Amino acid sequence: MSIQHFRVALIPFFAAFCLPVFAHPETLVKVKDAEDQLGARVGYIELDLNSGKILESFRPEERFPMMSTFKVLLCGAVLSRVDAGQEQLGRRIHYSQNDLVEYSPVTEKHLTDGMTVRELCSAAITMSDNTAANLLLTTIGGPKELTAFLHNMGDHVTRLDRWEPELNEAIPNDERDTTMPAAMATTLRKLLTGELLTLASRQQLIDWMEADKVAGPLLRSALPAGWFIADKSGAGERGSRGIIAALGPDGKPSRIVVIYTTGSQATMDERNRQIAEIGASLIKHW
């Protein structure tokens, strides 16, 4: 067993022997301040990774656009098919120029040779490549099948209805392509620590998230040296922004954090800054 596999296998073990965790309302004060600064709703939840206990939450059962955070769930569904012998990570998928959609920095470079399922998941999570996500959605049967996968996990809230990039439209009061912070946090925890996926697939999923290259201005910008984070960000229309993450000190994750916002007129930089400040408060009061 590799060191990384050992780390993920012992996530519940280490967490069980940690000192009790206590909620700190100071972080919620910052979440509410972010709402004021952005002029928009902000949803927040913080779960203990081992027990699933909610440590703090704000608007945990209000719907927010998922945006690209759905790509972690998508690759979880792909990995479940791999575990069941219905898919192979090494299978190569070929596609054409007509398949390319807006923001496809990886797939646009491989029109000639195609990409493997493993490479597509890596591109979808680490670079948020939209064509990679659409190609992977095709392998599982489309958005409705991802929703069905989530329902089978016990998540009857999260739903995907459309493809990239239309799913980022974020129309107010439109339930399409949305989740709730509580539902997303619980589902992410199941994917990373539950028995739904094999140990190898859980490790692969967290490795992809740990290698995320496009979430630097968010929670990662607030992390002290030595902290662990595996995350996936999302951005959408109407001032929408979000991030889902597993993080913790001492090089291992111990909490799940989900943050979503929508309806702001603020710039992307300002949305990023507010999420980073929430992260800084979380870490300060850990």
Rank of each mutant, 00 (worst) to 15 (best):
G90N: 06
S57E: 07
L89W: 13
V257T: 12
L38I: 06
S221Q: 13
F70H: 07
M184A: 07
S122A: 11
G242I: 00
T147G: 07
A133D: 03
E166H: 14
A133W: 00
E35Q: 13
C121G: 05
L49S: 12
H110V: 11
V78H: 04
T131C: 11
T179F: 03
T139W: 14
T186N: 15
R81G: 07
L135K: 05
I278M: 11
A245C: 13
Q203S: 06
A230G: 10
Q204Y: 08
K190G: 15
S57Y: 07
G141Q: 13
G114V: 03
Q97G: 12
S240Q: 12
K30I: 10
N98L: 08
I259E: 01
E87L: 13
R189L: 08
G39F: 15
Q274C: 10
V82S: 09
E166G: 14
V31Y: 00
A235C: 04
R91M: 14
I275M: 15
R220Q: 05
E145K: 14
R189S: 06
A132I: 01
I244S: 04
D269C: 14
P65E: 02
T262N: 08
T107W: 00
H285C: 09
I93A: 04
T193E: 07
L137W: 04
L49H: 05
A77T: 06
P143V: 08
A200K: 15
S57F: 12
T27C: 06
C75V: 14
I283W: 14
D207I: 10
L150Q: 08
D113E: 14
K32Q: 14
G39V: 12
I125L: 10
Y260Q: 03
L55G: 14
Y260K: 00
S96I: 12
D177L: 01
R176H: 07
L47E: 06
E277G: 07
V72E: 04
D174F: 03
S254D: 13
E145H: 10
G263S: 13
V42Y: 15
D212W: 03
M66R: 00
D36T: 14
G226N: 13
T107N: 04
E61R: 08
R159H: 07
G142P: 02
R92A: 06
K32C: 09
L223W: 03
G194T: 10
S51Y: 12
M209I: 03
K32A: 11
M180W: 09
V214A: 08
L282G: 04
A148S: 09
I171Q: 15
P249A: 09
E164I: 00
E46D: 15
S201V: 04
V117K: 03
G216M: 15
R238M: 06
P172H: 11
L160E: 02
A225K: 14
T139E: 15
V42A: 10
L74C: 05
T158Q: 01
E277W: 06
A276D: 07
R202L: 06
C121V: 04
I278R: 02
K71Q: 00
E169A: 13
A235E: 03
I275R: 01
L28T: 10
D155Q: 00
